Computed example of a mutant assay.
Amino acid sequence: MDLPVYTKQQLALRNGQDKPQIWVAYKGFIYDMTESRLWRNGRHYEHWAGQDLTDELSDAPHTEAVFEKFVPIAVLA
């Protein structure tokens, strides 16, 4: 799988506010959550899009298996 690479600064713009895309990173991969009803306006409960959520997953009521529903679109530099 040959995915494009984005920096944290590029990821930060895909927050549903600065740009319409809603992206989040987890364990080095970037996922597009734009179509997810749980990420309306770039927010999912107390989490904001455009960020690396790896360290925040321990606070979530779900496991990392939630990411299996999504295909990574890029790699986080």
Rank of each mutant, 00 (worst) to 15 (best):
E64K: 10
T7Y: 06
A25P: 02
L11F: 04
V5W: 08
I73Y: 04
E35D: 14
L57K: 01
N41H: 13
A25M: 02
L53H: 12
P61C: 08
V75G: 00
E46P: 11
E35M: 12
H47L: 15
Q17V: 15
V75F: 01
R40D: 11
K8I: 11
V5G: 04
L11N: 06
T63Y: 10
H44W: 06
A77K: 13
I30K: 09
K8E: 14
L13Y: 10
I30S: 07
L38G: 06
G28R: 00
P72S: 03
Y45F: 15
L57Q: 05
E56L: 15
A25Q: 03
G42T: 07
H62Y: 15
D18P: 00
T54L: 02
H62A: 08
K8N: 11
D18R: 07
W48K: 13
Q51P: 09
N41V: 05
A65E: 14
I73C: 00
K27C: 01
V5H: 09
L53V: 11
M33Q: 13
Y31S: 03
F70D: 00
A49V: 03
A74Y: 00
D32E: 06
L57I: 14
L13T: 13
L13P: 04
V24N: 10
N41Q: 14
D59W: 12
H47N: 12
E68W: 02
Y6R: 08
Y31M: 04
E64L: 09
D52G: 10
P72W: 01
A49T: 04
P4F: 01
Y45C: 05
N15V: 03
R37M: 11
E56Y: 12
L3A: 00
G16P: 02
